[in-house]
């Protein structure tokens, strides 16, 4: 990988895109501005001194996308075919979330346009609300997805919760992995369940099971981390040694137990 905006002498230059093929390109970027709950309430109710905040910020974002080449030195001037800005009011986090989508059929990507649009939309939100709230924070401006072009499609991986603690441990004792000779039950989580729990595989010492069944295994997992409560969802299926099982299926040392959502092949 190299930086395309640097030439062989390491100097900044604009990339010549004349010979690149025209393809349909799209980019989506997001960001948010966190504010006091009271400010958010005023914004939703239309009670701020500068008027309709979201409509103004939307126009600002669209204008910014069109003028990206004036702001970012080595960006090309592009004839965008579409710019859209969407806002979502997130009351739980007390913030306005902005998403910008830019599209064109052309020779260069539009991620800078989408990122600029989101940035300026958030700045405009700040300007519109600053009379009542100066503590607002603009955060996490990022590219979400980009399609078309030679470098291929990009999608940001969804953020995961912190991984579940899986190691065997006793108070005052830190171990890395399990001792080789400990008989274990090997647990796997598959597909959507793996992503939701943030866990792929873990070993549970067989002797720790009070009841030597799948239900007993679930009980031990729940003791380790409350997120394993999700295994009790009636949609979650399980297989013991690759054969469908249920809570009552007996376990022995070295069994492989997989938990997974309903299947969707074919």
């Amino acid at each position: 990988m190299s930086l395309t905006h640097l030439n062989t002498r390491g100097e900044a230059h604009m990339v010549d895109v004349a010979d690149k093929a025209e393809t349909r390109r799209e980019a989506r970027a997001s960001g948010y501005i966190t504010m006091q709950p009271a400010t958010l309430a005023l914004l939703s109710a239309g009670g701020l001194p500068k008027g309709d905040v979201l409509a103004t910020a939307r126009i600002a974002g669209i204008q910014a996308a069109k003028r990206t080449h004036e702001l970012i030195p080595l960006c090309h001037m592009l004839a965008l075919s579409k710019v859209s800005i969407d806002f979502e009011i997130n009351e739980t986090e007390s913030r306005v979330e902005a998403t910008a989508t830019c599209r064109l059929s052309g020779r260069t990507g539009v991620e800078m346009e989408a990122l600029t649009a989101v940035s300026v939309a958030c700045l405009t939100l700040y300007d519109m609300c600053k009379a009542v709230d100066k503590d607002m924070i603009i955060g996490e401006i990022k590219l979400e997805a980009k399609t078309g072009g030679k470098s291929g499609d990009y999608y940001r991986e969804p953020e995961r919760d912190s991984p579940i603690v899986t190691g065997e441990y006793r108070s005052g004792e830190v171990t890395v992995g399990l001792r080789q000779d400990t008989p274990c039950v090997h647990v796997k989580c598959l597909a959507e369940l793996r992503e939701r729990l943030g866990i792929n595989e873990l070993d549970v010492p067989f002797e720790s099971l009070k009841e030597q069944t799948v239900a007993g295994l679930k009980a031990i997992l729940r003791e380790r981390d409350e997120r394993f409560f999700q295994l009790d969802d009636s949609r979650v299926l399980c297989a013991v040694n690759q054969v469908m099982g249920s809570d009552g299926t007996p376990l022995t040392a070295d069994d492989e137990v997989a938990f997974f959502p309903p299947v969707t092949g074919g």
């Binding site: 989506r28 999608y155 969804p158 598959l190 597909a191 997974f260 959502p261 969707t264």
Partner: peptide, 19 residues
Amino acid sequence: RAPFWKKEHTASGHHWVAE
């Protein structure tokens, strides 16, 4: 019955296909 799972990729993100 066969353990396959589909994750779809769309312009607006990825999602696991529901049964």
